[in-house]
Design a protein around this nucleic acid. Structure first.
Lengths: 244, 244
DNA sequence: CGCCTATTTGATCTGATTCAAACAATGTGG
DNA sequence: CCACATTGTTTGAATCAGATCAAATAGGCG
């Protein structure tokens, strides 16, 4: 079944086609797997990493603080993501990456990744494409933070997380794991935790979603997508997963 | 002199090293050069381009509208930029690209670009790197829109534009071309044109900048950078241009 | 049980929006 | 070269979405 496959392969197959050889090469990637507890920085602003992190289990986030100590979260990461793939091309990290939950992380030396891409040039396109989708999500968040109201932003985030988690086999019965605090959602959407809370109450009152026990259940996809102005084109999941 | 060099080469040299062969290959890229008047879409959301745009002269912007008709500008583009390089990897555009001023644009077929990257694999890294810097700028804007106040945001944008324009040889005497309207700045920073105006008056009153005749002059770089919380690391211009 | 963290509620405040109008600059056609 | 239209900037007043502050409540867990 899908959920037992390698998260990286699942993730990449959700955005492109892989040949059996490419899949095998990905599975053969040497990596050091490690359990990391929650709220630990995996990479920090200013670091010059010599390896990339592959998230195998758990949730992580990329973020940065303003000088006045306000945090902006740039991205939530889920199993299969390589949140710091950019360190292959940019020497110095301009932001940090931290776990939000206990995680299982695979650390892969840049050298091994470069060798993989040299042996399988098409995989360069795949990783490049992945970082471009990452950027497309940034743009969509920017649109939300800059120009949409709180309710739309929260609904949009929920739609996005469902689509992304579905793509890696983590959705069951319109329910996905979403082990975030309301403060974390606020830091991602440019809102205060208090206002996130009030917005959630609206979405619940309209029977659009439930969010309990770190799991999000969409009760009314059409309604939620409408409130969130959600159009999944920007996720570029051109290879849609078939229904289970 | 620097300003007479090919804008694309100048731009890429500001973020990486190029061999003479690579430089020549870039100069030999077949492109159709065309003058485009202001406020024209070069690529539209939903398009499936078969070519990329190289901005040779003028300013352009990428943007998207919310369902309620509010615009968010994601990026300002200057000579040397290839704002839709992402279309090499993502079939469908999830946002639009338009000129903000009269522009000279080079249109390059995807086929020619792919052939270039095939012949010069290191250039793939360079273009990938460029799109990653693009994304780094998105993150910095997100941080501003989500967590910084109006004055900080405007000051930060000014610092960024100066750095980027300097890198392609368009700065003279602390002055750079900045042919944007206040409304466009507002759409980029998630502010209303009215509030941008009031914020500009503050920055002027503090003798940090002048902005007249479509040119921005920084009167006090230290002060402006401080107000804008500006740290240029995120631009990843590791190859700094020498002083003229 | 008691501690710590997260959620929820209420009251107040404010940065920024909106609306409306005046003003300035630029360009156009007669 | 002027009259006029158009677009961009500036000012003022009213309003609001969301922040902040403070405190209460609810979970989770050793």
């Amino acid at each position: 079944m899908a959920s037992s496959a390698h998260p990286l392969v699942l993730k990449l197959e959700s955005i492109t086609d892989l040949t059996p050889e490419e899949t095998q090469a990905l599975l053969d990637l040497p990596m050091r797997v490690q359990d990391v507890r929650e709220d630990q920085d995996l990479v920090r602003e200013g670091d010059r990493p010599s390896q990339c992190c592959l998230l195998l289990e758990g949730f992580a986030a990329r973020y940065k603080f303003t000088n006045t100590g306000k945090r902006q979260i740039f991205a939530f990461h889920t199993p299969g993501d390589m949140p710091d793939a950019l360190s292959l091309q940019l020497k110095t990290m301009d932001h940090s990456l931290a776990t939000l939950t206990p995680c299982k992380v695979g650390f892969i030396q840049h050298g091994h990744l470069r060798e993989l891409l040299r042996q399988h040039p098409r995989l360069t396109d795949v990783f490049w494409r992945d970082t471009l989708i990452d950027a497309a999500i940034f743009r969509e968040w920017m649109l939300g933070i800059g120009r949409r109201d709180a309710k739309t932003r929260v609904a949009h985030l929920f739609c996005e997380m469902v689509c992304r988690l579905r793509a890696v086999g983590l959705e069951k019965n319109n329910t996905v794991p979403l082990p975030l605090t309301q403060a974390e959602v606020g830091d991602a959407l440019g809102l205060s935790n208090v206002h996130v809370n009030r917005t959630l109450q609206e979405l619940r009152a309209e029977n659009l979603v439930e969010w309990e026990n770190k799991a999000l259940t969409v009760l009314d996809w059409r309604g939620l997508a409408q409130v969130g102005e959600f159009d999944e084109t920007y996720l570029h999941q051109d290879r849609k997963h078939l229904a289970a």
